[in-house]
Design a protein around this nucleic acid. Structure first.
Lengths: 199, 199
DNA sequence: GACTGTAACCACACCGGTCGGTATACTGTC
DNA sequence: GACAGTATACCGACCGGTGTGGTTACAGTC
């Protein structure tokens, strides 16, 4: 699985910068991007605000760095999950993505950090929005690619439906208090693939 | 369709109270609950902040009133859509819900107000959370009821999958820039029903 | 080793603005 | 009087962000 769109950082973070990004990642996810101020992040990271601004420039750029980091963590997680589950073919790759969702949500009680951030940032032209939209479109494109490898017909429609199930599980898990949403999504995806026509 | 859980207001709103709730509903949805302050709402409603607090007591209670109002508007919308589409049986009722999603999202460019609010409110014990969770659980319960009427087997699993499609469309519409998400969900729901075993 | 320059960070103060909320005196209508 | 609303000022806290003087560790040069 290639992760086009995820670029390496311009340069490595200093120790303080790393602590800032780590603290911000935790607080942003757990409490909300707008609910946490830079004062709190600086305190949690045990740095001064001056250092935070020296390293990241602004809160918005720190937010973008957080989402970029999260995207990397998710890709690494997915890679590790695929390595571990050893899917035999493209269909099993797709289903492994859904199986991985259960593990991901076990450690992400507040649902999808990207979905949450897209709500909180509000403005469609926020610098971090491309990371968010890009992550979702990457997943859809991956479904298209695997569906094509598997020889299915109408791969675009199939990928769209798979994405709805994936995103639906992410949201329902949190908003509808549906703890078993990932498992439901996996079963639904498996049935969808089993009944989908070949091209 | 009954709308259990949606209670009548304790007493009717004054003209100013109505203007406040209307202004808040618009601003909260369009810009975000945390992004809009009470100053801006009072100004948009052409009242003083004092009046706002006299009528609603606090911002959190205004938020709860907004979501309660939105829930009513959505139920009224759904009723009107069902009246208009005249579904013949329970399966068509389910599909009418999905068909209505297209119209709903045509006027709700920022996606689902309940999902958005659940992110922004962050704290699970916020007074408005029961409205949010309740709306989602009401929809799931309605899917269960209609699936049962239609004589399907495993109605809980079916309802779960339908809910994932519905919520997935709401989210993907906005986060994944997927304009056709409601239509995809409707087709997927139709196929799901067509292939689901009877009990 | 002595010296210099640099990068990174600290402590602290400050900025103008916004936030949700409160208090006071007053007006108008029924 | 009861009710609803106005105009205005105020509160403490928080918001993202900036400025100043200082310290420390390290690398490079002589």
């Amino acid at each position: 699985m290639e992760r086009t769109g995820v670029e390496e950082p311009a340069k490595p973070l200093t120790a303080a910068g790393e602590r800032i990004l780590t603290a911000a990642s935790t607080l942003f996810y757990e409490q909300g991007i707008r609910a946490v101020g830079v004062d709190a992040i600086a305190m949690a990271a045990e740095v001064t605000k001056k250092t935070l601004y020296d390293r990241f420039g602004s809160k918005d750029r720190l937010i973008a760095a957080y989402l970029d980091r999260r995207n990397r963590v998710w890709h690494a997680f997915l890679d590790e999950q695929l390595e571990r589950r050893r899917p035999g073919g493209p269909e099993e790759v797709i289903l492994a993505v859904f199986a991985a969702l259960t593990d991901w949500l076990a450690e992400s009680r507040r649902g999808c950090g990207f979905i949450n951030a897209s709500v909180e940032l509000a403005a469609p032209d926020h610098p971090a929005m491309p990371v968010i939209v890009g992550q979702k479109q990457w997943l859809r494109a991956e479904f298209v690619a695997q569906a094509r490898l598997a020889g299915f017909a109408e791969v675009e429609e199939l990928a769209d439906r798979l994405l709805l199930l994936h995103e639906g599980a992410l949201v329902s898990f949190r908003v509808a208090a549906m703890e078993h949403a990932p498992e439901v999504a996996e079963r639904a995806a498996a049935d969808l693939l089993a009944g989908w026509p070949r091209g």
